[in-house]
């Protein structure tokens, strides 16, 4: 097996050797139309050790982890944890992320969880908008939700913030820096 395949297997806990390219994963994937390659192709690429192509791809950032592929796979291979592993590797290696909005959202979300212990949507979304420099998309929907009193203005922190911080420190650099 290619060393890259071994690495992804260990990180994801998925046995890639079981794949026999039946394409059931691709058939059920809700986001495959926004991937560069179909799901079964991703498995093959990992087996072939195509590290640069995969870690620099949009594909790994477009998977939303719905677990349809793995649930239907006759060999029990879940692409969700594999995509998680590929994203972690891409971040660890400091690769450019071709889906900046997705990265900005996850970073803003985790920064909020880290700072308050719970996610505060108003400040999280403001941080996300600042990172993407896109203030107009969904402004209308955001204002409607705000008008319905759905987005509280002030954040409330929890008592156990120090424990939450310990969890983030135990995790790797991929989860972002404090307040970042």
């Amino acid at each position: 097996m290619h060393p890259f395949a071994t690495e992804v297997q260990e990180l994801s806990g998925q046995n890639l050797s079981r794949c026999y390219q039946c394409k059931k994963c691709t058939a059920g994937c809700p986001t495959v139309s926004w991937y560069e390659w179909p799901n079964h192709g991703v498995v093959r690429m990992i087996q072939r050790g195509m590290r640069d192509a995969l870690l620099g791809s949009k594909t790994i950032w477009m998977c939303v982890g719905c677990d349809t592929c793995g649930t239907r796979c006759p060999n029990g291979i879940y692409l969700g944890p594999i995509m998680d592993a590929l994203r972690s590797l891409a971040r660890r290696e400091g690769r450019r992320v071709p889906e900046p909005a997705v990265l900005a959202f996850h970073e803003a979300f985790l920064a909020s969880a880290r700072r308050f212990g719970r996610v505060h949507e108003a400040t999280m979304l403001a941080a996300y908008k600042l990172k993407t420099r896109d203030f107009l998309t969904d402004l209308g929907v955001g204002l409607k939700l705000f008008a319905k009193g759905k987005i509280p203005v002030l954040p409330k922190g929890i008592q156990g913030k120090a424990e939450v911080e310990k969890i983030f420190r135990l995790g790797g650099r991929a989860a972002g820096r404090r307040g970042g």
């Binding site: 996610v119 983030f168 135990l170 995790g171 989860a175």
Partner: peptide, 25 residues
């Protein structure tokens, strides 16, 4: 009492340990 964020879709996406650690608390 004093529950924290479960990590949403973001924690497991970015880091396995944080993805398991937040709900573990």
């Amino acid at each position: 009492p004093d529950w924290n964020c479960c990590g949403g879709a973001s924690a497991h996406t970015m880091d396995r340990v944080v993805g398991l650690g937040l709900p573990a608390r």
